[in-house]
Design a protein around this nucleic acid. Structure first.
Lengths: 154, 154
DNA sequence: CCAAACGATGGGTGTACTCCAACGATTGGG
DNA sequence: CCCAATCGTTGGAGTACACCCATCGTTTGG
């Protein structure tokens, strides 16, 4: 009589809502990424900032903030930790001494490379049940969806 | 010179990570659902509980908790608000008077119906850039992915 | 009949994430 | 030369979420 008669199943109504399913998958994916970054002593934001610094030239902290939609107040902490870890370099702009010029260091670039590699592997784990073609399809569709809601994703 | 030279674009490195893209989409979807539920005076948990009560018979609060992975402590508040709103009925189990039997009321069922309808419309908005076939594909793939990570989704 | 188990409840903790107000330093325009 | 605006910075508020624990009434089993 101790056997639980309740099936450990989520309500069909919820499973029929793509938003719910997507949010759940996104949540677990984000959690895994977070745990992975923890092992590198960094948070998810740090990864985003490193990536932003890599793909476009050195930027001021404010530019980083607006680009990644992080509040300027929070950028301070993120860049600060990255600097402490020796992953970025922060120097006053000689032209405008109010702003900092934030730049990737060699170590920062290497770390970004390593994290990117691990992220790709986590992606594989997340989409494990899908074959290559299905993963490509899913990724393509999701990117279109994201681009529709966030112009920055184009 | 006031024109911002920084492109309002997310770093390609991030966009190449399915986990990131999925998490972003999930975030906006969840936010929209939350706003919608707010208009009904409820939170996302309340929707989940109503759905759980609808699809399977009346359950105890503990069963609801384990099924939806909500801490028993938190179930109390959710069910409490639902009862205040007249959407569920809470009575002592005559067989085991320790437990409550939580049940949907007529109003609760109607509210669930209304919320489900609105959720479906929000789903359409979320997947707006995709045609019907693509939406079906995406939903199917995402459900398989979720099922892989959460046995309750099968 | 009494100790152990169970469900419901209330309270509190810790952690992210987001946002806002204010300040010193600096710049550029009037 | 002065004043408004900008940048980085500090500090803190607010919310959401997931936990954990102590308590109380009830039931169960020896």
């Amino acid at each position: 009589m101790t056997a639980n008669a309740i099936p450990e199943r989520l309500p069909p109504r919820l499973l029929d809502i793509s938003t719910f399913v997507t949010a759940q998958v996104g949540r677990t994916g984000r959690a895994r990424m977070g745990r992975m970054m923890d092992e590198h002593g960094l948070g998810l934001w740090h990864f985003a900032v490193l990536a932003a610094l890599d793909d476009s030239a050195p930027a001021s902290q404010r530019e980083l903030g607006t680009r990644l939609r992080i509040d300027p107040s929070d950028v301070v902490e993120v860049v600060g930790r990255l600097e402490e870890a020796g992953l970025v370099q922060r120097e006053r702009d000689t032209a405008d001494r109010r702003r900092y010029v934030v730049e990737l260091t060699a170590r920062g670039r290497a770390e970004l490379e390593a994290v990117t590699e691990r992220a790709a592997r986590l992606d594989d784990e997340l989409l494990a049940p899908l074959d290559d073609a299905e993963r490509a399809t899913l990724t393509r569709l999701m990117r279109r969806v994201l681009a529709h809601h966030d112009p920055r994703a184009r």
